[in-house]
Amino acid sequence: MKMQAQSPCFDLAQSVKRLSQVGVSDLRVAADIGVHSHEIGRRQTLVISVIADIVTPREDALAETIDYNRIVEYAQDLARERICLIETYAARLADLCLQSDLVVRVEVSVQKPAALLNGLASTRIVRWA
C-alpha cells in the first residue's frame, strides 16, 4: 500500500492548534522620534503594545517561550535610536520579536500621545515569520 505524503497545509493546521500568545501592553518609552523640526532631538513618549503568537510551550521552561522582558529590552533599545516614523519603529520592533524561532506572528501597536492636539496618533503592524 502506497502512503501519501502529508501536505504542508496539514502540518500548518497542526501547528496552529498549538499557538499561545505572549503580550506586553502599555509599555512607555521615551524616543527621539518624529519628522517635524520641533520633534527632532526631543524625546517623546511612545506607548507600545506587543502580542506575539508562539508555539505553545511543551514544558514549563522559559526557553519554551519568548521572554516578555526581552520584548521590553527590544523596545527600549529602539527608543535610543533616532527614528522618523512610528511605522518604522513598529516594523523594527516586530522584526526583532520574529528573531525568536518560537514566534510565528507578531502584532505591534505604537501610540504617540503628544503628536496631535485633539486625537491619538498610532500605528499597528502585523508580521508573520
Score class of each variant (00 low, 15 high):
91 A>P: 11
48 I>F: 04
87 E>R: 12
39 E>Y: 12
36 H>C: 11
50 V>F: 01
52 A>D: 01
21 Q>D: 11
47 V>S: 10
20 S>K: 15
77 D>T: 12
24 V>H: 01
114 A>T: 12
23 G>Y: 13
26 D>F: 10
75 A>C: 04
110 V>W: 01
92 R>E: 02
113 P>H: 02
32 D>M: 11
31 A>R: 02
47 V>R: 05
103 V>H: 03
35 V>C: 12
107 E>G: 05
37 S>K: 03
67 D>H: 13
75 A>Q: 03
53 D>V: 04
27 L>R: 05
113 P>L: 00
20 S>L: 11
91 A>N: 15
68 Y>K: 10
115 A>Q: 06
83 I>Q: 00
69 N>K: 15
41 G>M: 08
59 E>C: 11
34 G>C: 05
58 R>Q: 11
67 D>V: 12
89 Y>V: 04
78 L>W: 01
83 I>W: 01
10 F>R: 13
111 Q>C: 10
25 S>Y: 13
52 A>P: 00
78 L>N: 02
64 E>C: 07
104 V>K: 11
72 V>P: 00
28 R>Q: 13
34 G>H: 00
103 V>C: 03
56 T>P: 05
12 L>A: 13
100 S>E: 06
10 F>H: 09
35 V>A: 11
93 L>V: 02
120 L>R: 03
32 D>Q: 06
79 A>E: 02
61 A>N: 06
11 D>C: 09
18 R>G: 04
119 G>Y: 08
112 K>P: 00
119 G>E: 08
49 S>Y: 05
18 R>V: 14
70 R>E: 12
32 D>A: 09
25 S>T: 13
67 D>Y: 05
58 R>H: 10
74 Y>I: 08
86 I>S: 00
27 L>T: 09
35 V>P: 01
110 V>Q: 01
110 V>P: 09
83 I>L: 03
24 V>G: 02
42 R>G: 08
112 K>V: 03
96 L>K: 07
10 F>L: 14
90 A>N: 07
110 V>Y: 01
105 R>L: 14
58 R>M: 14
91 A>H: 06
78 L>K: 04
10 F>G: 07
112 K>S: 04
78 L>I: 07
59 E>Y: 15
